[in-house]
Amino acid sequence: MRPILLSGHERALTQVKYNPDGDIIFSVSKDHVVCAWFSHNGERLGTYHGHQGALWTVDVDPTSTLLATGGADNTMRLWEVKTGKLLKTWDFPTSIKRVEFSADGRQLLGVTEKRSGHLGTIVVYEIDPDPEAEQTDEQSLRIVCEDSKPTVAGFSYLAHYIISGHEDGTVSQWDAKSGELLYNAQVHEPDMLITDLQWAPDRTYFITASKDKTARISAADSLEVLKTYTTDTPLNSAAITPVKEYVILGGGQAAMDVTTTSARQGKFEARFYHKIFAEEIGRVRGHFGPLNYVAVHPQGTGYCSGGEDGYVRVHHFDKPYFDFLYEVEREQAQEQANL
């Protein structure tokens, strides 16, 4: 199917997210506005106004009632999805680079930027899922990262751990109750910024993307690297597809170098790899700037990508996507059927 082009933003996209039902896409961009779109036709549902600076991150709770955002105006905000009402604003000394709800939606974490004498931190708030309720100002947990600045973070299954990716290419595992550092692993090349961390549907493993041109899948409990996907371009994002065993990687020449290279040279393509065999199976072109984020429909029926070029491209997978199987997978399926 032809991709749907969402051209409501005026500046580079920074994050796009599907809600758990997959019917709505939330997008944030450097133009200070949060947009909500219908995923099946690309119609805009509404916008959320209030942020005073570029937006870096967005997340929606599992019931699609609450929306969290964070940005360069040093605030993290909570909105009501339905009405667009601003429910809560938390102020910080530096900008918010990443927000994420836990699987049950009762906790919200934020990653703060390291700047002007402030170390990078990961903060956690208890969230009341009722949109009418007063949200707390009290941080239930505050982790200060002294060694290396965290860039991305998220909750593991059952909110056991908080996993964070750092600018030095390491991944840390924290106890989500006590904030204690349990383990730190050099998952990517040293001093290669980790740009994204996305979870598998059951949050037992996650994929990280890095400037070292690779994406890797690691297990949440052991931090063991299970798979490595090597590309020829710095990566900004990586997502795991449900239903089919694929991963989608996005990236391209760094935005500042783009003017000196042709679109072809920039490698602004979404790349599909087989999750288990780590082999490239396809590419999707379209953006004329690097892909800043790729998100997969929770039911695995499509994906969308937000680019430095200011567009969100929404793709719905066609039949061949679902039909494609490696010979050994077909064997496996046959065996399953025979049982």
Binding site: P20, D21, P62, T63, A103, D104, G105, Y157, L158, P201, D202, R203, T204, P242, P298
Partner: peptide, 18 residues
């Protein structure tokens, strides 16, 4: 999956939906 079942992770086993 077994581990999740033992831990009673209902949301996780439902693909992130409550």
């Amino acid at each position: 999956v077994r581990m999740l079942e033992e831990e009673g992770a209902v949301i996780e086993l439902n693909g992130g939906k409550i």
